[in-house]
Design a protein around this nucleic acid. Structure first.
Lengths: 227, 227
DNA sequence: TAAACTGAATCTGTACACAATATTGGAAAC
DNA sequence: GTTTCCAATATTGTGTACAGATTCAGTTTA
């Protein structure tokens, strides 16, 4: 779809493809990323794939084990809790900054995004819904105008998608509410307190819908499963 | 000093060397990082240096220009202000977490660090002072127990050193106060309000000591300088 | 004198080849 | 039947070679 020219994809374009695949739950946590296959898939040399993996590792999206290869990260329960704690810290600040300095064009972009989410929900396009839900928070971060906070959110949102993929109940729809609409409404009437409150409830709703009680991966009791 | 074995430095070890050099003001903002020279200096191939540079670029410590090479970042005034705004957001949360869950061993580590800073000040070792000042905030972040906040601080501290190198008055000593001691004291008596207040004043003190009025780099008036 | 052009030298971008390590399947031993 | 060992295979780690872009000095020209 994107990068149709196929004329030498850049490191960033490849990294973003991986990023998108993760956000759309097309790459599951723990998936092995074989260098040779990726090189073939993107029609570049392993050298370049290697740089992509190094960048994604620094971003926290993949974990590299020496002489074993690279894998999509599998956040632990502990990591999930720390991640949500971080988002509860960052996103109120984002709201404050957005309300303080949002231009008309910014509000327009927010509404355009809400429309996209609405369309995706109507079409029951689950992948698009998940992806757009993350992008909403990323868009707010971008509008807030702090590049460090934005960069941080750019790491946390894909990881949040991974956490949802790992710990969500399969039947639970992702972000079913119109939370985003209400947050934008509060921003537009410059009601800082309400907007922050809505955002915090939104985050707590997402986190509470997860199964963060036991660690799925680190302490699997194979005896019990197979015995 | 470190990595004395010289037996194949790893990507992380090289990146940390660069990081330390920046924190000690031994690598100035805008310095060119020639791949060939670095490869020779660390006795590895350019391939590895390239990965190091990609990681450091993702971290924000170096800027790469296509076909031109990699350079130590030169934060703008705008970036400096956003950085301090971010630290004013993160560090109170760090204080809260440290007070909430610090063990005895953590307080011991803090005191050991304060001793190191004291020694460096007595020896008037400016490089060590700058480096240790940054490390203090990093140590607090580590104790706070949130890996995402810690990772963020790991990026912001070196950048802060770069900003000080760019915008500080040369004669101003770096962090001359005993601010750090007082912060630790407040943490020990679990006085959250005071500790946060001290931290915020500390950050504002650092920022206000800088010349963040005009951009040194982007709008240099060569006519005036040479005319 | 200053500006513009040209070519050599340097540096980055990329791919490929080889060495080192881990995984896997089968054979042998208990 | 189970476990252990070993060789074949596949994958990662690293260095080197070559192509393309940029820079800079020297020369030419207005």
């Amino acid at each position: 779809m994107q990068n149709m020219e196929a004329g030498k994809p850049t490191i960033e374009s490849i990294a973003e493809r991986i990023n998108n695949a993760v956000m759309e739950h097309r790459l599951a946590p723990g998936s092995k990323l074989s260098e040779t296959r990726m090189a073939a898939a993107f029609n570049v040399s392993r050298t370049k794939i290697r740089q992509v993996l190094a960048v994604l590792a620094k971003k926290g999206l993949v974990e590299v084990y020496p002489n074993r290869g690279a894998f999509i990260a599998s956040p632990t329960v502990q990591e999930a809790q720390e991640l949500f704690a971080t988002r509860r810290l960052l996103e109120p600040e984002i709201i404050r900054n957005v309300i303080a300095q949002a231009q008309k064009a910014d509000l327009k972009r927010l509404h355009e995004h809400l429309d996209k989410e609405k369309t995706a929900r109507q079409q029951k396009n689950r992948r698009a819904i998940i992806r757009l839900s993350g992008d909403f928070h990323l868009l707010l971060a971008r509008i807030s105008g702090n590049r460090y906070v934005e960069s941080m959110m750019g790491e946390l949102c894909p990881l949040t998608c991974l956490i949802i993929a790992m710990y969500d109940l399969p039947q639970t729809p992702a972000c079913p509410e119109d939370d985003h609409d209400r947050i934008v409404a509060a921003i537009e009437r410059r009601d800082e307190k309400a907007a922050i409150e809505l955002m915090l409830h939104h985050l707590e709703h997402i986190e509470s819908a997860l199964h963060l009680t036991s660690n799925h991966r680190d302490d699997v009791d194979w005896d019990q499963i197979l015995g």
